[in-house]
Nucleic acid binder design. Structure first.
Length: 905
RNA sequence: GCGCGGGUGGCGGAAUGGUAGACGCGCUAGUUUCAGGAGCUAGUGGGGUAAAACCUGUGUGAGUUCGAGUCUCAUCUCGCGCACCA
């Protein structure tokens, strides 16, 4: 009987589905384990071989945990709202729901072939009204809540109203005024800010959706624009999001990314009095270097700062306005490109240094950001590189404040040295001077210590169709929440998916888009809305009374292992944590943090192949000979290349242009060049998992993806290496079958066979728990080589082997497990127990004393020549003069030969 | 500029401070087969030898150690993230 993977895989996949083998049911008698993949956006291109990498890893771990006796929750779903389906809809008129459903079905088909152990009964789709009901529900909760700084958590807005009433600030306000007041406190609020506007997409974008001035999706230019938008008060959670990282089992690099994004900085706000003619204003600045206040030689305002208008003198008005116009015209991209170019304009007014009484000019410059701190800074050119560049460009004074520093060429930014020219701070180190200066400022009522965060509130509106509608309507212009009982507020049908002629979002096209006779909000929610709490929904996906029931939530709690790409570090992974903390504050979920352990799988890159066409001909020259000709390098479809050898016939048939291609061969073959590039259609290097499943089977695919290298590393896909793991499975099969005969016996295993097995058990256990899947696969191969060598066909060895291997190759192992006489799925088997005694059985440990003080333990195989060992021990005192009392000496011996002496304290 | 990871054969990659290159691909030779993008056996870092011995070897340079791919410092280089955040 041959290893017929196609038949085997199809049969067991059907069996698993029909018997709901992977169904997760709350079971308080078992410990839970929640393994989650970042659910995919179902794009039109389908899966390539890089996508399932993380899914395979999480599946292996899920199956491992099941064998270890855990009740495993391992669900899957789709992040189904999003721009590409909508862009496609605009071009073709095809409803996004239709394309999305089509893509989901295609994804499901591809996923099913790989043999994942998902509980598909728990599938969620973010575009399903039964699902986005709870996205809208969470939004309503955020709209109806505020962040109470005293209790340091979110609370219902009613507690704030009560507070206002008690303070006499509420009664007497009009309905509009009350709404406006509360809007400044709500967790989900509407506010006017500078947003990333993408004209090509016709929508605003969040900070993490923009990269280097272009939209992440589509790569269209993005500009800054002031607009009224829905926002989430993520910034209120900055400190908790930062502190929460400490308890998480995430990589340091990912934590650093989040820390960086949150951007906490401790400093001090200080008030400078500014005179514009005879009018006086108090301008507050933010600085982390309060100690340098004696070196302030000017102030700088952000161009968008509200102070600009008030502090511009009549004489400078024209110049300032000219500058503002110039600054506004620039796109975000141009600003970035001119990062080091210094621009600015004098406002005409002067500020008084609160410590020295000196008068310094107030300038306006782009290098100060309106959105951070107070939008105004005190400039200390001697000790800040940016201020220095500005001072040099506009010829402003530079006062050094640290003994012995040289500021003739560049500023001295380091935070060390002794202060000088600084009044009462003279003689202190910088590290002493900072708190001393802040204390002085506070004591004299000139300002106060202040912590700032770079984390901004999340822009939550999108001017698009294919997203969750906001459950908000406008009563005489006042935003009002839709009643909870009327959720979900489903997306209306519209005839076209473009914005309206007047530039309104597509929802404005909907007929009767009203609630209680009032107009509804026409924006929709962004992509991250639906993905922020999906892990909670999996716990209780059919519940129509709550996002998740208390019972389900208290059993599953949070995700124990989350696997996904690093691209979500500052988007989804921040928003989800925020969302979860908010729900925690209101008592809806049991855990503060959603994802306990997180692993970022690396990208699988493509391996492109090239052919070399001699210029002006249709002749292609083999790689080794190409330097003798003038050639152009052309991408060739990797699927018609094997081991870098071109299939000439397939090449001629590939494209009409190559029908009559001629070849210059080396050794009778056409050798292609190659390079590692991103896997993409345009480079003809996309490898489809379906194709691998057809040729080699899902078990081989799973094994090979893990074997490629460490999970977290990026690595190239190279189909040619797959033969090795495929061979491994064929050899496994041959341990069970010889032709049509089942050859497994009940014979007792030999010590050598037991050693092979238990070495493997130990390695599989340790490496799987450490997520080192590539070395685990290698361990299986080593064991296989030994078993083939030993010609072992014994149940005692093969059964535990099959159980362990089933986490990697479930289909073939299910088949073999049943062949061994079992009638339940291998999923319900137990992970074999590791017995150390079997693996050290061949070694001897000799404790040795020297001079009655030292003890040597000599650990060596039996086969080592005793005379040789004795000699070493005798000679040791001479060769090991460094050995102290109580040291343990270990002699490492390979058969017959002493290799090294180890000393351990 | 700041922060975080990496540099090991022809390739992907292994190595609790202790035989560097596991395992796999590729390659070489042999063998088997009607055939194969098939199976089996042996070899495979470089130099050296008939074969051994031997020499050399983990980006570069120092250091710690009886012993360093691994630890420390410096340096070069690649990748990623943030980026006028005061």
């Amino acid at each position: 009987m041959e290893y017929d993977f196609k038949e085997i895989e199809a049969r067991w996949q059907k069996y698993w589905a029909e018997n709901h083998v992977f169904k997760a049911v709350e079971d308080k008698s078992k410990p839970k384990y929640y393994v989650l993949d970042m659910f995919p956006y179902p794009s039109g291109a389908g899966l390539h071989v890089g996508h399932p990498l993380g899914y395979i890893a999480s599946d292996i771990y899920s199956r491992y945990k099941r064998l270890c006796g855990f009740n495993v929750l391992h669900p899957m779903g789709y992040d189904a709202f999003g721009l590409p389906a909508e862009q496609y809809a605009i071009q073709t008129g095809q409803h996004p729901e239709k394309t999305t459903t089509g893509n989901i079905n295609r994804y499901r088909g591809q996923l099913d072939r790989i043999g994942f152990s998902y509980d598909w009964d728990r599938e969620v789709r973010t575009c399903d009204p039964a699902y986005y009901k709870w996205t809208q529900w969470a939004f309503l909760k955020m709209f109806g809540s505020w962040y109470n700084p005293e209790t340091d958590k979110a609370e219902p807005i009613e507690t704030l109203v009560a507070k206002f009433k008690a303070e006499g600030k509420w009664d007497g306000l009009s309905e509009k005024e009350q709404s406006d007041l509360l809007m400044q406190y709500r967790i989900a609020y509407q506010g006017e800010t500078a947003v990333n506007w993408c004209p090509a997409l016709g929508t605003v974008l969040a900070n993490d959706e923009v990269k280097e001035g272009y939209s992440v999706r589509g790569g269209h230019p993005v500009e800054q624009k002031k607009m009224k938008q829905w926002q989430l008060r993520v910034s209120a959670y900055a400190e908790r999001l930062l502190r929460g990282l400490d308890d998480l089992d995430w990589t340091d690099s990912l934590k650093d990314m989040q820390k960086n994004w949150i951007g906490k900085s401790r400093g001090c706000e200080m008030v400078f009095q500014v005179e514009n003619g005879d009018r006086k204003y108090d301008v507050t600045i933010f600085t982390t270097r309060a100690d340098t206040v004696f070196g302030v030689t000017f102030l700088v305002l952000a161009p968008e700062s509200e102070w600009v208008e008030k502090l511009t003198s009549p004489e400078q008005k024209a110049a300032v306005e000219e500058y503002l116009v110039q600054a506004k015209k620039k796109t975000e991209r141009e600003r970035l490109a001119e990062t080091r170019k210094v621009t600015g304009v004098f406002s005409g007014s002067y500020a008084t240094n609160p410590l020295t009484g000196d008068k310094v000019p107030v300038w306006i410059s782009e290098y100060v950001l309106a959105g951070y701190g107070t939008g105004a800074i005190m400039a200390v050119p001697a000790h800040d590189g940016r201020d220095y560049a500005f001072a040099k460009a506009f010829n402003l004074p530079i006062i050094p404040l640290i003994e012995g520093c040289d500021v003739s060429e560049q500023s001295f930014d380091a935070k060390d040295g002794i202060m000088c020219n600084s009044g009462f701070l003279n003689g202190l180190t910088v590290k002493e001077a900072i708190p001393a200066a802040i204390k002085y400022v506070e004591d004299h009522g000139l300002g106060h210590a202040k912590v700032n965060y770079r984390l901004r509130d999340a822009i939550f509106s999108r001017q698009r169709y294919w997203g969750e509608p906001f459950p908000i309507y406008y009563k005489d212009g006042i935003p009002m929440p839709v009643d909870e009982k009327d959720l979900p507020l489903t997306l209306p049908e519209i005839d076209e998916f473009k914005p309206t002629e007047t530039g309104e979002p597509p929802l404005a096209r909907a007929k009767d888009w009203t609630y209680k006779g009032y107009p509804l909000e026409t924006s929709t929610m962004p992509g991250f809305a639906g993905s922020s709490a999906y892990y909670l929904r999996y716990m209780d996906p059919q519940n129509d009374k709550a996002l998740v029931s208390r019972e389900a939530d208290e059993y599953w709690r949070n995700v124990d292992l989350y696997i996904g790409g690093t691209e979500h570090a500052t988007g989804h992974l921040i928003y989800s944590r925020f969302w979860n903390k908010f729900l925690y504050d209101l008592g809806y979920v049991a855990e503060q943090e959603p994802f306990r352990k997180l692993i970022n799988q690396g990208m699988i890159q493509g391996r492109s192949n090239f052919v070399y066409r001699i210029i002006g001909t249709n002749t292609f020259v083999s790689y080794g000979l190409k330097d003798k000709y003038e050639t152009t390098q052309i991408h060739v479809n990797v699927n018609i290349v094997h081991n870098d050898r071109l299939d000439l016939e397939a090449f001629r048939n590939w494209m009409p242009d190559y029908k009559d291609a001629e070849f210059i061969l080396e050794n009778g073959e056409y050798v292609c060049g190659w390079a590692i590039e991103k896997m993409s259609k345009s480079m003809f290097n996309v490898v489809n998992p379906d194709m691998i499943c057809d040729t080699y089977g899902a078990d081989t695919l799973r094994l090979y993806e893990m074997f490629l290298g460490p999970l977290e590393q990026s690595k190239p896909w190279d189909t040619k290496g797959i033969d090795g793991v495929n061979r491994f499975l064929k050899r496994l099969w041959r341990l069970f079958y010889e032709r049509d005969n089942f050859i497994v016996t009940d014979e007792k295993a030999t010590p050598a066979e037991l050693k092979t097995l238990h070495k493997l058990i130990g390695k599989v256990q340790a490496d799987t728990e450490a997520f080192s899947f590539n070395t685990t696969v290698a361990a299986f191969m080593i064991a296989m080589n030994e078993l083939v060598e030993e010609d072992c066909h014994k149940r005692e060895i093969l059964e535990p082997l099959v159980i362990m291997l089933s986490i990697y190759c479930p289909h073939i192992c299910e088949e073999l497990y049943h062949a061994l006489g079992h009638d339940t799925s291998v999923t319900y088997a137990e992970f074999p127990e590791y017995v150390e005694a079997y693996t050290v059985e061949n070694n001897c440990t000799y404790p040795v004393q020297f001079n009655g003080k030292m003890r040597f333990t000599v650990d060596l195989p039996k086969s080592a020549a005793p005379a040789e060992v004795e000699k070493v021990i005798r000679e040791m005192p001479q060769t090991s003069k460094y050995v102290g009392d109580g040291a343990i000496v270990k002699v490492i011996v390979v058969p017959g030969k002493i290799v090294n002496i180890v000393v351990k304290q």
